[in-house]
Design a binder for these strands. Structure first.
Lengths: 143, 143
DNA sequence: TTTGATGCAAATGTTTTGCATTGCA
DNA sequence: TGCAATGCAAAACATTTGCATCAAA
C-alpha cells in the first residue's frame, strides 16, 4: 500500500512526490521504470515534480527496500517494486520488454561458485538478452 | 597477436592508437579495463592519444569481436580481451577485483528458461557481487 | 515552528559527435 | 594522393548536488 503511514514507518515524510511515485509503481502495468519514465508520468498526470526529486526519491525508496534497482544494457537504471521474491530478468533487445524468472538450480549453482572461491554473495544480477524479431514476441512492433 | 595484419583482416587500418590499445589488453595483468583506464595507460607510456579515440577504438574492437564489453555495478563499461571461451563474472564490491567463472549447468538452465518462454538467447550477463571484507579476498586493502 | 523535502540550475561523470587536420595504404 | 582515423572541443546523456524556498509534522 502507498499510504502515508507506510512512508513514515521507513522514516520518510509523506510528501506528495513520494506518494505519487509509490502509487505509480503500484499501478503501472509496466513493472520496470527508469527515472525519466517516472518523471514523464508525473508530468502527464499533472504532478509538477522536478527530475532531481524523482532521482532522490527513487534512491531513498531503494535504500528503504521498497524498490529494487537494475542496470540493463540500455545503460540507464530501472526500478521495480520490491515484492519480496527474488527473480532474474529476461530482456528483449528490440523492444525492451522485460520478463521475470526464477530458477532455483541457477541460484544454487551461484552459491556454489562463490563458495568454492571463498566468497560470500552480496548480490547478483542475471540478465538474459533475447531477440524479439519473431511472432512470439509479447510486444512485437512496440518500441 | 597484435600485429598490423590482424587489424587489417577485420577491416581496420593499423594505426598507432589501435596497435597500442590491443597490445595493452594483451599485456595487462588486469583483464578488465574501462576507457579511462586505457586512456591513462596510454598517457603513462607516452602514446599521446585522445580519450575520444580510445572510446572509438574500444567500440570498434568490440564490434569486430576482439573485445567483450561488460557493465558492472560501477556504472562504467569495462572491456576485456575476447579469448573465445564464454564466462561470467564474480565482482568484489569493495575493491573491484574481478574473477571469471563458467558453470555449464547455469548455462544450460538459462537456455531452458529462454526456450520455455519462446525466446532465443542473443546474449546474457551474470554478475555475482561479493564482499571482500575478509582475509580470503585476493586484493584485500587494494582500492 | 522547525526540520526535512522540493525545485531549479549548475555541476559531474561517462560517452558521443562535429570538424579540421593528420597519417596509413 | 585519397579516404579513413585522429585530436580537440563541444554536445549529449544520466545522475548528483548546492541552495534558497516550501511544506509536513
Amino acid at each position: 500500500m502507498s499510504s502515508p503511514e507506510h512512508l513514515k514507518t521507513i522514516g520518510l515524510k509523506a510528501t506528495l512526490p513520494r506518494l505519487r511515485i509509490l502509487e505509480l509503481f503500484e499501478k503501472s502495468p509496466v513493472r520496470h521504470l527508469a527515472a525519466e519514465d517516472v518523471y514523464k508520468k508525473l508530468v502527464e498526470e499533472g504532478t509538477d515534480s522536478g527530475l532531481a526529486t524523482v532521482y532522490r526519491v527513487l534512491t531513498q525508496f531503494e535504500q528503504a527496500g521498497l524498490l529494487v534497482r537494475h542496470h540493463f544494457e540500455s545503460g540507464k537504471a530501472v526500478y521495480e517494486l520490491n515484492q519480496g521474491s527474488h527473480h532474474d530478468h529476461l530482456v528483449c533487445l528490440q523492444c525492451g520488454h522485460v520478463e521475470e524468472f526464477y530458477d532455483a538450480e541457477i541460484e544454487k549453482r551461484q552459491e556454489k561458485v562463490a563458495e568454492e572461491r571463498g566468497f560470500r554473495i552480496n548480490d547478483h544480477s542475471l540478465h538474459i538478452y533475447v531477440d524479439c524479431t519473431k511472432p512470439a514476441c509479447p510486444r512485437k512492433g512496440n518500441p
